[in-house]
Design a protein around this nucleic acid. Structure first.
Lengths: 210, 210
DNA sequence: CAAAAAAAATGACTAAAGTAATATATGCGA
DNA sequence: TCGCATATATTACTTTAGTCATTTTTTTTG
């Protein structure tokens, strides 16, 4: 039997959710809370497999509660429940490793499916949520294009600078003289309209050369 | 009626999928292809709403096909279908903006749900896939902790260095003398066991001070 | 208030970075 | 093979960065 803790401040909604969840005979709601603080308190008295937490609650909100539960009862899986697909909340929740982020307007089945999936290590994201959050996450991944007028050699040097090497080390690694490295560096500075190697290192990192 | 293009090289599997999809009376498979090239060719003759593409196909694989379809027929939604939850494929697919990444072992319903969701702008990720890919995406987000022995002033200087300022500029911005900035910089280098400001800039960026 | 601690400044120095003009190779097409 | 372009080197020079010992100023605190 899967033991679920349900935290939601609106009693009607909570009862609805409870009934909904318990239509599945493998799941039982063995604890109910009005707010995050109560939820945490319950965790200290009883054992649960999954916590279903509303994001917005008085006293202690769902994110805070999730944080506490995560650290004190690491075996528990956490599903966040919300009315809004607020971007910042989603990120915060995902960062702390919740097992799902559900909109309340979803159907019965999907909540039940998520509870079971959570226990198997899955992460349930409703399609609308995923559509919003994945591009956001990918944004940091995409690299800006580096100046195409840079020669391969110049790129190599730029990469070295981005690794924090000094001219002597770069010369050794690339089999050049220190003077050449300096000259090339000047070239690169010219092309990229930057001033010194520190700015080059920043450029290299921001353009994911390193 | 939703028009679906189904590309999958194994005929048996394809027929199975087709039957599966067409249990829903709103959806119709109006095109079938053995490989990516055929799929693209079909798109040029017929109109489809959604393309369901197997990742691994002869001639032109699903990723390639998706890329072409994405650019030539941007109104079409694309769902990737795969046996394996291969990380690299997932990333590639997500980057090009597919509407779903499904494992073949999923149930009938979920594929149908995904097709409909795709048309509404949703992104379907199965729980196992999401559980794998989201932490991967978050990894780049999480900041490493900066050395706690740094004083606020030192942090400020480190941040400036990370922005590519030289000592004079830092002195002006923080209302210090150039000499002080140099001294402080030496301090920071000592604490972080680094050699020069270029390495400091790299440190600052990697630790998200800038 | 006065001693101690912390923060900021100075000056003198060395090392490294960056600039610029010029020289020397090295490869490649006419 | 000549000549031209490109890559690499050399040299000499200026500027900036970084070190260190020491001093001044400010802040803290007994």
């Amino acid at each position: 039997m899967i033991k679920v803790l349900l935290a939601e401040d609106q009693v009607m909604v909570r009862q609805g959710l409870k009934a909904m969840i318990e239509t599945d005979e493998e799941i039982e709601v063995t604890g109910e809370a009005d707010n995050g603080r109560q939820a945490v308190a319950l965790c200290e008295k009883q054992l649960f497999d999954v916590a279903v937490l509303d994001i917005r609650m008085p006293e202690m909100d769902g994110i805070e509660a999730a944080k506490v539960i995560r650290s004190r009862f690491p075996h528990m899986k956490i599903l966040m429940l919300t009315t809004f697909d607020d971007n910042q909340y989603i990120m915060d929740a995902l960062k702390m490793g919740v097992s799902g982020y559900m909109l309340k307007d979803g159907d019965t089945e999907s909540l039940i499916r998520s509870i079971k999936s959570a226990l198997k290590g899955g992460l349930s994201l409703q399609d609308q949520v995923a559509a919003k959050v994945v591009p956001e996450l990918l944004k940091t991944e995409e690299q800006e294009t580096v100046d195409p007028t840079l020669t391969p050699r110049e790129r190599a040097i730029l990469k070295c600078i981005g690794e924090g090497l000094n001219n002597k080390e770069i010369a050794e690694r690339l089999g050049l003289s220190v003077g050449t490295v300096k000259n090339q560096t000047s070239q690169i500075l010219d092309k990229l309209e930057l001033r010194d190697r520190t700015q080059l290192a920043i450029y290299a990192i921001r353009h994911r050369l390193v």
